[in-house]
Nucleic acid binder design. Structure first.
Length: 490
RNA sequence: GGCCCCGUCGUCUAGCCCGGUCCAGGACACCGCCCUUUCACGGCGGCGACGCGGGUUCAAAUCCCGCCGGGGUCACCA
């Protein structure tokens, strides 16, 4: 038997932003396609005009691109199975609908949503599973005409084969069996003719020659219906793989109420797409018991559905943040600066046409390289280099006050700094340490207070590096200004 | 509630299919120590799990049964 070419699809509905769960599903599809030299298709499931929006569509496309998940076929790039937006495929569905009506696998149902809900409620009350009772399944043409005369507009239902159990082999879960009793005739088109999800999904997967359907496990219960549609269409079944859901801290499906953000929000918060993708891949998939760093490219080499877990995974931002930090540390100082640039620009710390200032920023960020965890932190890490006057935080003020000798020592420090011919970090360190020696003090005493005076903070880069970058003039000035702290009561 | 799925450290997971090498390995977080002018990075160490109960077996995280727990789904949404 000839193996069919691998074709997978990610099929989001543009009813919201791309969230992390969707992103992971997209990633798994992408990886699977690449791994098997197949095709990754993007299909937009916008059959519900009331809930779909262009804004969401655009943001999903942008998010996928940010992650680097390029699709070979889909909106924006085209492909021979297009169009790839279901709102543009109405003709395809209409044709299938007509064929199925003619074949008798679809029939008109005149029940109203209200009537159906009432009957479902009765069934629930009676302890039965609420399902469609087949009331309109065998309506005669005359009966239908009568109902129409009453002003009723029919929807179309799919006729499930009576008494037929269904089963399929899930690539992740193994064999899944569904009893016929659990299946009912479901709506495939609304009275206005617009088709519904289970129908279009199967029609398109068949039409687009999708070989593997990789999606969230919340779709397991849809699978039998879609299989039934496939059969009615006379199409070969794809293979199904249902990946576990992403969970919130309370173990229920990750959602907005857990504070789940859209993918693009993570971008805004300064996460690197390469770190984000790496982290996402590890949520439900593993390589072995050791390795956890993978580039997108490496993932495409190693990914396999066999190593996808069955258990849902909790999205742990802390680990993401740690991983982001390690990725940030792998960048060269220049790359780090360039990638932090959007955040730096937004913070408006200095004029970008001032080359000297840009250079200071570049070097300042380099001094914080080992500490930065997200790009969004960049501005606050270096802003004191550009502040007109230093404002001291609580801890800094405390460190300043602890300086032995107080104001006098601060003045001496300023004097010493002003007298230095060579204001390099090395020369500065030598001089400051010598001063500490002269006064019979631990160098740390001076260093801590001086850092506070120069930066307004108790934490920061190496004092001597920072001071050298700040420049002699500003160092002397800030040391002088810091004497004000001692004049305040405290 | 019916049906379906899942169940190893707080979290992500390796191990389970092919029982012994697992008094369960790695990572994040946390704690301690080291490095060090602070923070951080890095290094070292610690804390910490096989949901419970039966059974099979010389031997069970691994196989079987039951229970419990969690989740998903039951639309003219996708």
């Amino acid at each position: 038997m000839v193996k069919k070419p691998v074709r997978v699809r990610f099929a989001p509905a543009p009813t919201g932003y791309l969230h992390v769960g969707g992103a992971r599903t997209a990633l798994f599809n992408y990886l699977f396609a690449r791994r098997h030299k197949g095709t990754f298709v993007l299909r937009v499931e916008d059959t519900d005009p009331a809930r779909s929006s262009e804004e969401f569509y655009a943001s999903i496309v942008e998010a996928l691109r940010w992650l680097g998940l390029e699709w070979e076929e889909g909106p924006e790039v085209g492909g021979k199975y297009g169009p790839y937006r279901q709102s543009e495929r109405r003709a395809v569905y209409d044709e299938a609908l007509t064929r199925m009506q003619e074949a008798g696998t679809a029939y008109e149902c005149f029940c109203t949503p209200e009537e159906l809900e009432a009957r479902r409620e009765e069934m629930r009350a009676a302890g039965e599973a609420p399902r469609y009772d087949g009331r309109c399944a065998e309506l005669s043409p005359e009966a239908r005409a009568g109902l129409r005369a009453q002003g009723r507009e029919p929807c179309l239902r799919f006729r499930m084969a009576a008494g037929a159990d269904l089963a399929y082999d899930d690539l992740i879960r193994g064999r899944v069996e569904i009893k016929a009793a659990e299946l009912d005739d479901f709506v495939i088109a609304r009275p206005d003719g617009s088709p519904t999800y289970n129908f279009v999904c199967a029609v398109d997967d068949a039409a687009m020659a999708i070989s593997h359907v990789i999606r969230g496990e919340d779709h397991i219960s849809n699978t039998p219906r879609q299989i039934a549609v496939y059969r009615a269409l006379g199409a070969d079944l794809p293979l199904f793989a249902h990946v576990p859901l992403l969970l919130g801290p309370d173990k229920s499906r990750l959602s907005k109420r857990h504070g789940a953000k859209s993918v693009l929000e993570y971008r805004e918060e300064g996460y690197l797409p390469e770190a984000f993708v790496n982290f996402l891949a590890l949520l439900g998939w593993s390589y072995d018991d050791e390795r956890e760093f993978f580039s997108l490219k490496e993932l495409t080499k190693h990914f396999s559905l066999e190593r996808v877990a069955k258990k849902g995974a909790v999205f742990d931002v802390e680990k993401l943040t740690w991983m982001n930090g390690t990725y940030l540390r792998k960048l060269s100082p220049e790359e780090l600066f360039e990638r932090a640039r959007p955040w730096l620009e937004a913070a408006n710390l200095f004029a970008w046409d001032d080359e000297a200032a840009v250079e200071v920023a570049r070097r300042a960020l380099a001094l914080e390289h080992e500490k930065i965890k997200t790009l969004a932190e960049a501005p606050s890490l270096i802003d004191f280099f550009f502040a007109e006057h230093v404002t001291y935080d609580e801890k800094a003020e405390k460190n300043l006050r602890k300086l032995p000798g107080g104001v006098d020592m601060l003045r001496d420090l300023a004097e010493v700094c002003a007298a230095l011919d060579d204001f390099s970090a090395a020369a500065l360190e030598k001089r400051i340490r010598a001063l500490a020696e002269e006064r019979d003090l631990g160098a740390g005493k001076i260093i801590h207070a001086m850092r506070a005076a120069l930066t307004g903070r108790a934490v920061g880069p190496s004092l001597f590096d920072l001071a050298a970058l700040l420049g002699q003039e500003r160092v002397v000035r800030r040391l002088a200004e810091a004497t004000a702290v001692f004049k305040k009561p405290g």
